[in-house]
Design a protein around this nucleic acid. Structure first.
Length: 276
DNA sequence: TTCCAGGGTTGCT
DNA sequence: AGCAACCATGGA
């Protein structure tokens, strides 16, 4: 499968290195990662970016949804916010993906009180330990595990892979997810979605917001990590619990507040001071 | 050595 | 309901 996209609408670094997915790396100007049992490559091709997917057959429509290609990222927000406008200008070609729910659930349980390079290592180790192997050009890659496959690992094994104290959360959540139909979340409001996701151990309001936004297409979900809280405090003068922050974000950024959140996250990490 | 990272859970008030 | 201590790990 091959898809080409205008380079102005798809900047791999601002998509894959933005903390929404943890399986993509850059090498020699080409971004590679695994999604939906495929090796995904994003390579520059003149005025376009060529996306090449190899592995388990997946329809073009599914890929289009994965990369959110049917959504134009121009004019998503109310026009009168200079901070957001600056953040948007600083991250051209950013897109919010629609990832697999179970992978997103597990990845963001791991993300709690953790940093992105380490999250990537742990996710990769879990895929190698429990995911279905597949071969592309003689290289062996691994899909993200199904819930039953992850549930088959021991707590000791998960700790050895770097999961630390989150190991039991991962196992219990994998067992729960094996009984779950994530398609049923399509009919729920963002608020109901975020509440229901918190039945998973290791999932609080922030992680639930990430799953809602990055996997369940709830574009008004507004997950607030330390960087988002920092930028909301310093540049918007807002501090408060996640419920109040969601209300504020909806008023300030509109129905695509989650996409605004992704621009702001990108901007904060490049322009704000760490710590405090 | 201490602090920090896309936080959550537990226990106390 | 709000709040603080605690939680594995590794890089800075």
């Amino acid at each position: 499968m091959e898809v080409t996209v205008p380079a102005t609408e798809f900047v791999p670094e601002n998509i894959f290195a933005c903390g929404q997915t943890f399986r993509f790396r850059e090498e020699g100007g080409v971004w590679r990662g695994v999604a939906m049992g495929n090796l995904v490559e994003a390579a520059p091709a003149g005025e376009e970016v060529r996306l090449t997917m190899r592995g388990r057959p997946v329809s073009r429509e599914t890929w289009s949804h994965y990369f959110d290609l049917d959504c134009s990222y121009a004019d998503l927000f109310p026009a009168a916010d200079p901070v957001l406008a600056k953040a948007v200008l600083s991250a051209p070609g950013l897109r919010v993906l629609n990832q697999e729910p179970f992978e997103t659930l597990i990845s963001f349980i791991i993300s709690a009180n953790n940093n992105i390079p380490r999250i990537m290592r742990i996710v990769e180790a879990i895929c190698e330990a429990a995911g279905d192997p597949f071969e592309v050009d003689g290289a062996v890659l691994h899909a993200f595990p199904e819930p039953e496959q992850l549930a088959g690992l021991s707590e000791a094994k998960l700790r050895k892979l770097g999961a630390g104290y989150r190991a039991p959360y991962l196992l219990e959540s994998a067992h729960l997810a094996a009984q779950e139909d994530f398609a049923s979340y399509a009919d729920l409001s963002t608020k109901e979605t975020v509440q229901r996701l918190q039945k998973y151990p290791g999932v609080g309001p922030k992680v639930a917001g990430c799953i809602a936004l990055f996997a369940l297409a709830k574009r008004d979900a507004f997950p607030a990590d330390i960087w988002i809280r920092r930028i909301m405090r310093d540049l918007y003068g807002f501090e408060g619990p996640s419920d109040a922050l969601n209300v504020f974000a909806g008023q300030q950024f509109g129905e695509y507040a989650g996409i605004a959140q992704q621009y702001l996250f990108h901007y904060a990490r490049r322009n704000l001071e760490p710590g405090s």
